[in-house]
């Protein structure tokens, strides 16, 4: 799809190596720019709370779909359905049709989904930045303290947890599953909001 003026920027939100989670991107013959984002810059700027998360940006640098789970096919994990099978097709449709694509989120809806974060979320974000600063200095204990504060202030942001747990490989999965158990009925990922498929022309009404 590169010849259609489409590119992928993949930003790894951790200090570990880059592992692109989705083979679909390779099959689509898209060259992507792989970036290392140890301080979660992209997550903070685009209000992402989990991975993999995608944002669609048009030729003029405008957001047309805000942060949402970016698996190209629906996955089943943790007893939940995650992602949407239409993601890859939706993306292709937008690359073809641009603003006419039904997958472009209308302006009003976009604005409400991009709505400002509350004071607690923004303070959580500031603590995350302090943690990233300490992590950069090699002080994991202090980093962890501030990341825990981020988690306390904004428990719905999975990236905060993920970064902290990544320090202790042995406990990573245990910590993760314990947190998932606390979810109850809340989704691990919010569902992708795609338009309902076009039902086609209405069936002819039977004559009385």
């Amino acid at each position: 799809m590169k010849d259609k003026g489409f590119e992928i920027i993949a930003a790894a939100q951790d200090t570990g190596g880059l592992q692109v989670a989705d083979p679909w991107y390779e099959k689509a013959h898209v060259t992507y720019t792989a970036l290392i984002d140890t301080k979660h810059t992209v997550s903070s700027l685009f209000q992402m709370v989990n991975v993999p998360t995608g944002v669609w940006v048009d030729e003029r640098g405008k957001i047309v779909r805000p942060a949402e789970v970016a698996y190209s096919k629906q996955q089943r994990a943790l007893g939940q359905a995650i992602g949407d099978d239409r993601y890859a097709a939706g993306l292709r449709d937008w690359v073809e049709k641009g603003p006419k694509s039904v997958y472009v989120v209308p302006r009003e809806k976009l604005q409400s989904r991009l709505a400002m974060r509350g004071a607690r979320e923004r303070l959580a974000d500031a603590h995350f930045k302090l943690g990233a600063y300490f992590s950069d200095q090699g002080n994991r204990e202090l980093a962890s303290q501030h990341w825990q504060e981020s988690q306390r202030l904004n428990p719905d942001n999975w990236n905060y947890h993920r970064q902290d747990w990544s320090f202790d490989k042995a406990k990573e999965m245990t910590n993760f599953l314990a947190k998932v158990r606390k979810l109850g009925n809340k989704p691990y990922y919010d569902p992708v909001e795609f338009p309902e498929p076009d039902p086609g022309p209405a069936p002819p009404q039977p004559k009385p």
Partner: peptide, 25 residues
């Protein structure tokens, strides 16, 4: 990027982009 070369989002103006955030787990 992996080679340490800096890239800005604004360099990609004129193209459609999927900005994707991943993690190694």
């Amino acid at each position: 990027d992996l080679a340490g070369e800096p890239h800005s989002m604004s360099q990609f103006r004129g193209r459609k982009l999927l900005l994707a955030a991943f993690s190694s787990w």
